Computed example of a mutant assay.
Amino acid sequence: MASAVIKFSAIMMLIGVCAADVSELPEVKAAAAAAPPVTEVCLGCICQAVSGCKQGTQCEGDHCGLFHITWPYWADAGKPTINGLSPDDPNAYPSCTNDPYCAAQTVQGYMKRYAQDCNGDGQINCYDYMAIHKKGGYGCSGELPFNYVNTFNQCVAIVASQQQQG
């Protein structure tokens, strides 16, 4: 887990350094508005909490891939695909959700659709996305499994401590 978190942390630090000087440019503001809602670090910690980010995770039961995405979740996310497959192709769902990049796109699409303040703190952030991912777009304020939240929080704490050291 630590090596994957280090990679996400390093990417985020580089982005922060590069963006610091240009963040007020109109082009940068427009790009930020179009940016995916979930950061790389947040995606990484959700992945860690869901599956341990074990590469090669495939379909099992009603869910597929590193993020354990179900068909309805994928459909709500806009049915992203890879390799030019039609969303109606029978292989579109498993091929996307078993591919880490397409699965991450699926999570982004789902979060764009269902973004909301699940914990009532007045902000929509990574903790809300973590809850939405686990409980769905209409149940994110419900009770979350302890192990899921604990693993997620540990991941976030490791990234935060590495960012402070860097």
Rank of each mutant, 00 (worst) to 15 (best):
V41H: 08
N147L: 15
H63T: 10
K135G: 08
Q123R: 11
G16R: 02
C96P: 09
Y73F: 11
A160M: 01
K79I: 00
D99A: 08
M12G: 07
Q162A: 14
A32M: 09
S161W: 11
Q48Y: 08
D117I: 08
A157I: 00
H133D: 04
C155E: 02
A19M: 14
N125Y: 02
S95E: 15
I124R: 02
G61Y: 01
D128Y: 03
I46N: 01
P94Q: 04
D121K: 05
P80V: 12
D76V: 00
N150K: 15
T81S: 03
D89A: 12
M130A: 14
C42V: 10
M13D: 05
A115E: 06
Y138C: 02
G52S: 06
C59N: 04
C118K: 06
D128I: 05
D76E: 12
Q165K: 15
L14C: 15
Q165C: 10
A31Y: 01
V17Q: 10
A30T: 09
D121E: 09
W74T: 07
C18I: 09
A160Q: 10
N98W: 04
H68Q: 12
G137Q: 03
Q116V: 10
Q105S: 13
A19K: 08
G122M: 02
A131I: 00
G139Y: 10
F152Y: 14
N83K: 14
Q108Y: 07
A77C: 08
N98K: 15
D62G: 04
P37H: 02
A30D: 13
L144S: 04
G137N: 01
R113S: 02
D62I: 00
C18G: 13
G137R: 00
A32V: 00
T39Q: 11
A2W: 14
Y73M: 04
Y101I: 15
Q162C: 09
I158D: 12
Y138E: 12
S86M: 07
T106R: 01
A30Y: 02
N125W: 02
A19Y: 09
Q48K: 03
L144N: 02
L85Q: 14
L25W: 14
A49N: 05
I69P: 02
M1C: 06
G136S: 05
I124F: 05
C53Y: 03
E143A: 12
C47K: 04
K79H: 07
I69K: 00
S51Q: 03
A131M: 10
Y127R: 14
A115H: 03
A19C: 11
Q108V: 06
V156R: 09
N91F: 00
S161Y: 12
F8L: 13
T106G: 04
Y127Q: 10
Q163D: 03
D121R: 07
I158K: 11
V38F: 07
G139S: 12
C118W: 05
C140G: 04
G139I: 08
V38K: 05
T151S: 13
T151Q: 09
A2V: 13
T106L: 07
C42H: 07
T97Y: 03
F152D: 08
V107A: 07
D89N: 12
P37I: 03
P72T: 03
V50S: 05
G120D: 02
P80H: 11
N125D: 15
T57Q: 06
